[in-house]
């Protein structure tokens, strides 16, 4: 039982890892916690649904389509909204991201209605091993996320683009002197993080019904994971996501499952009380 919950938690955590990583990377470059991450996740799920059910594409192609759609949506939001407000400080950006979130959520609602939907999938039999049950969706999620994380890690740590992204997050004006334009790097970062959120949206749609409010179920755990890792720290966000996923699933031993988000919220509160910099560093204290 415990092993089963641990495994479920690991998969949940992996699913959270992508948007948490996206949130933290955007925070690094734009200095605000993007409220719209949940709505973007929903958009990803619907984009995947459109490709998979309406166009009849196989799921991997649907995921690629969702990555593209959400990536472009992020670039568009940046171009139309966030970049224009960047000089006005993070509170304004936060409020704007709430507006953006409302718009995206209601575009989905307008196009697809409130009814719950799901992907067109062949039902596969779960694998059983030593009393632990692993289903097809969980394996897909784990596989896709691990590959995406490895690719992203290589990109961030070993490529010139990754160096440029970290340089801009660290010190934009010095980066400009070094020939790294913040604007270009910001656009690329939005595109890439949007792709991560889009893929996560499709994976979330494997796990639960797709509806316009589905992103709200992930909002708090995603923020908790990013804070746990220290806002702005990519590795921290992934580790934080795994911990949150496991903590949420394990909590069902003692709490009703509907209280899983309360676990995430408590983690946020405890961290703010005792370790403001997250478990992995990153400065949070105001100026």
């Amino acid at each position: 039982m415990v092993a089963q919950l641990f495994l479920n938690g690991l998969v949940t955590g992996l699913l959270l890892a992508l948007p948490a990583l996206a949130l933290t990377l955007i925070f690094g470059i734009m200095r605000f916690a993007n409220f719209a991450v949940g709505a973007l996740l929903t958009l990803g799920a619907y984009a995947g649904y459109l490709a998979n059910v309406t166009f009849g594409l196989p799921l991997p192609m649907a995921a690629a389509f969702a990555a593209l759609v959400v990536g472009l949506a992020c670039v568009l939001c940046d171009e139309l909204v966030f970049e224009r407000l960047r000089e006005r400080g993070s509170i304004t950006l936060l409020v704007a991201s709430m507006g953006v979130s409302l718009v995206i959520e209601n575009i989905c609602r307008f196009a697809f209605g409130n009814a719950a939907r799901s992907f067109d999938l062949a039902v596969a039999r779960p694998i059983r091993w030593n009393g632990i049950r692993i289903n097809y969706e969980q394996m897909t999620t784990a596989g896709v996320v691990v590959v995406a994380l490895i690719l992203f890690h290589l990109l961030l740590s070993a490529s010139p683009l990754g160096r440029a992204m970290r340089a801009v997050a660290d010190n934009p004006s010095l980066a400009a002197v070094r020939g790294v334009e913040r604007r270009t790097v910001a656009r690329i970062t939005w595109m890439l993080t949007g792709a991560l959120i889009g893929i996560a949206g499709v994976l979330a749609g494997l796990d639960r019904a797709i509806d316009p409010l589905m992103g709200w179920n992930y909002q708090i755990p995603i923020f908790a994971a990013a804070i746990l890792g220290g806002l702005g720290s990519p590795l921290g966000a992934v580790a934080g996501a795994l911990l949150i996923g496991i903590a949420e699933e394990m909590s069902t031993l003692v709490l009703p499952p509907s209280y899983r988000q309360i676990v995430s919220f408590s983690v946020i509160l405890l961290l703010l009380l005792f370790r403001t910099n997250g478990l992995f560093g990153a400065k949070a204290v105001r100026k």
Partner: peptide, 18 residues
């Protein structure tokens, strides 16, 4: 209160949901 604005934002989002 001693942290960046983002943290109060996150905590209040969470509060509303909880």
């Amino acid at each position: 209160i001693r942290l960046e604005e983002n943290y109060l934002a996150i905590v209040t989002i969470g509060f509303g949901e909880i």
